[in-house]
Each structure stands twice: as structure tokens, then as C-alpha cells.
Computed example of a mutant assay.
Amino acid sequence: MRRVVLVLGTFALVTAACSRPSGPVTAPLPSSVPPPVTVTSAAPALPPEPQPVAAGPCPYLATDFVADANGQRVSKVKLSADRPHPACFFYDLAGKPQLTVRVYVGEPAVATALVDHAAPVDTSNPATEPPGWQGGYLQTGGGAVYAVAKQGVAIVVTTDQMQTVKARTVAKQAISALGLY
């Protein structure tokens, strides 16, 4: 009888050993740490594009300066309804916009987003003038853009000229005239 018990006991051990999964046995880890949560902040809402609504001189850029800097005579100037700093639209002799200057003062995230919208960081050259300002510049299908921001201020200059230096020159003058250094 002893042999039967011994044989049955051995059989039970062999059967149990064969039914185990192969490889190391690990106990599941307690989930005391919650899984990481990815928080993405929504991009700030951009203000609407400024529209020319009234004729008049640009309060922060002289027409003669713009004509010299952009290399074209200016036939008329229009302003947006934005306050306190309207966007200025300078037109060529054929009546087409040749240069536009947009000034935004407000939330830093919106200023940065406006600059990135005008001169996307992934596709533009880095702009660092005037000192302390950050942004980008690039040629576009119809000209060039120079866009920079500092804290909660953004300046975006678009021109129908292919030379970005013209837009940069106007941007620096606008910043200086507005006392935004």
C-alpha cells in the first residue's frame, strides 16, 4: 500500500509540474501608481485677421518711411478698427496691398501663437531682431513675412516684396515708434 501512495504522490507531483507555465513565475505588481496622464493644452484662440476699414495715416509708421523701406511708392493707407494699435495697410500705385503691419498687445500665449501662425517655427528662419524679440521670417508665395513677439506683444509685417529684410526693417521701426523695446 505504501508503494501505491508513493506512486500516486509522485504522479501528482509530475502532473502538477507539467501543468505550470514555463519561464519564471512572477506575481502581478500592485497598481499603486496610476498610469501617467498626458495633458495637452489647447492652442490659444487667435484674434481675427485685421481688416482695413478706414483711410488715414498709420499712427506709428510714416508713409515715406514705408515707401523707402519697401521700395515702392504708397498710394493710400488704411487702418483696421483694432485698438489701441490698429493694423496699417499700405497700398501700391495699382491699389493692391504692398505692406501690412499688425500689432497685437495682450496675452503672451496669443502673441506667440500669432507669430507662429504668420511664420511657423518649423518652416521659417529664426528672427531675433530687435534684441529680446523672438519669431521667424520667410518668403511666401507673394512676398515675405517677418513676425516677432516679446512677452505679450506681437508684430507681424507682410510685404509683397521677396526680400525679408524689408519686412524686418519695418518691424523694427514699428517697435521703436510704439516704444515697445
Results as ranks from 00 to 15, higher is better:
P130W: 06
T158V: 13
V145I: 14
G152S: 13
Y146C: 04
Q134S: 09
Q161F: 08
V170G: 10
M162N: 05
Q139R: 14
V145G: 12
A149S: 14
V148K: 02
V156A: 10
Q161D: 14
G142C: 01
T140Y: 09
V148I: 10
A127N: 03
A144F: 04
T164G: 10
Q151W: 10
A127D: 01
P126A: 12
G143H: 11
I155V: 15
T169D: 06
A127T: 03
A149L: 01
G135I: 01
T158K: 15
K150H: 11
A127L: 06
K150S: 11
G142A: 09
M162E: 06
A149K: 06
A167G: 07
G136Q: 01
Q151A: 15
G136L: 03
L138V: 10
T169K: 07
G132Y: 13
T159K: 07
Y137L: 07
G142F: 09
G136N: 02
G142P: 07
L138K: 14
G142N: 13
E129R: 12
K166P: 00
V165Q: 12
P126F: 09
W133F: 10
K150Y: 03
P131D: 09
V153C: 02
A149G: 05
Q151G: 10
K150V: 00
Q161P: 00
T140K: 08
P126Q: 10
G136T: 06
T158I: 07
V165S: 14
V156T: 14
P131W: 02
T128N: 13
W133T: 00
L138P: 00
T128M: 08
I155N: 12
Q151L: 09
E129H: 08
T128P: 10
P131C: 01
P126I: 14
W133G: 02
G142K: 07
L138F: 05
Q161S: 12
D160T: 11
A149E: 08
T164M: 15
R168E: 15
K166L: 13
V165C: 00
W133D: 01
M162W: 02
A149Y: 12
V148S: 05
E129Y: 08
A147M: 04
G143F: 11
G152I: 04
E129Q: 13
G135C: 03
V170Y: 10
G141L: 07
A144S: 15
V148N: 03
D160M: 08
A144K: 03
